Amino acid sequence: MSIQEIADRLVELCKAGDFATAHAELYADDCVSIEPDGAPVKEVKGKEGLAQKGKQFDEMMEVHGFTVSAPIVADEFFSIVLGMDATFKPTGQRSNSSEIAVYEVKDGKIVKEEFFFRPQGSGM
């Protein structure tokens, strides 16, 4: 698949809420996922790390709505904007947030994803 095809497929799967298929189909076994400072988990490695991060997210958040932009592709990278309406389960606080996600592709697989947003309560 081309980088554009990978980006389009990721957007399709994210819009459907099918993150497990996205990870299985599009990510390299040794991929890296990086969150900003202040996020509960800063970095995970590998598909198992992605699965654990997803499980932690599901335990902490109740998602009411999710949006995904069209991808922007440049060289070996693409970016999307993710929006979310969710409630933080431990506090019951509901909020709307958005973030920019940047993905790096090598040999037909996503090898790195990095998310850019201000974690709530980060004081930034």
Score class of each variant (00 low, 15 high):
66 F>R: 05
50 L>A: 09
38 G>Y: 02
84 M>Q: 04
63 V>D: 15
17 G>P: 06
36 P>K: 03
118 R>N: 10
62 E>Q: 15
35 E>M: 01
81 V>P: 03
39 A>N: 05
45 K>E: 05
55 K>D: 11
110 I>C: 14
8 D>M: 11
56 Q>P: 00
107 D>S: 08
8 D>R: 13
11 V>S: 11
40 P>V: 00
61 M>T: 02
53 K>H: 09
73 V>K: 09
124 M>R: 11
108 G>A: 14
39 A>Q: 02
124 M>F: 07
58 D>W: 07
65 G>D: 09
41 V>M: 05
36 P>E: 04
51 A>H: 07
21 T>E: 01
43 E>T: 11
82 L>F: 13
114 E>D: 01
74 A>Q: 08
66 F>P: 03
119 P>E: 03
5 E>G: 09
81 V>W: 08
6 I>D: 07
77 F>Q: 15
52 Q>S: 14
25 E>I: 06
121 G>P: 08
16 A>Q: 12
3 I>F: 12
74 A>C: 10
5 E>S: 07
75 D>K: 12
51 A>W: 09
9 R>A: 13
43 E>M: 07
12 E>W: 03
82 L>Q: 13
101 A>Y: 03
17 G>F: 08
65 G>C: 03
91 T>K: 06
12 E>F: 14
70 A>L: 15
4 Q>S: 13
19 F>Q: 05
68 V>Y: 06
31 C>W: 02
32 V>H: 03
7 A>D: 09
96 N>L: 12
1 M>T: 11
9 R>C: 10
70 A>P: 10
124 M>A: 12
86 A>M: 14
77 F>R: 15
124 M>C: 13
111 V>K: 06
48 E>K: 13
67 T>I: 01
121 G>W: 11
49 G>R: 06
101 A>G: 07
27 Y>M: 13
44 V>E: 13
39 A>M: 09
94 R>D: 05
89 K>R: 07
40 P>I: 00
77 F>A: 15
41 V>P: 00
37 D>K: 06
54 G>I: 00
1 M>H: 13
83 G>Y: 15
26 L>V: 08
80 I>W: 08
98 S>C: 15
80 I>V: 13
10 L>S: 00
97 S>D: 14
63 V>Q: 13
68 V>G: 06
48 E>P: 04
28 A>N: 15
48 E>I: 09
43 E>D: 00
115 F>S: 14
39 A>R: 04
27 Y>D: 04
21 T>A: 03
85 D>P: 04
89 K>S: 04
35 E>D: 07
75 D>M: 07
69 S>G: 05
71 P>H: 12
34 I>N: 06
109 K>Q: 11
7 A>H: 08
74 A>F: 10
92 G>L: 01
117 F>P: 15
2 S>N: 12
122 S>R: 00
51 A>G: 11
62 E>R: 13
29 D>T: 06
9 R>V: 10
102 V>L: 14
3 I>Q: 07
23 H>F: 09
29 D>W: 00
36 P>A: 11
89 K>Y: 00
117 F>W: 15
97 S>F: 15
31 C>Y: 02
100 I>T: 10
45 K>H: 12
1 M>F: 08
96 N>C: 05
13 L>S: 02
92 G>S: 00
74 A>G: 12
39 A>E: 07
108 G>S: 12
36 P>G: 09
78 F>P: 06
8 D>G: 14
10 L>F: 00
23 H>G: 04
26 L>F: 04
54 G>E: 02
81 V>I: 10
61 M>I: 03
105 V>M: 14
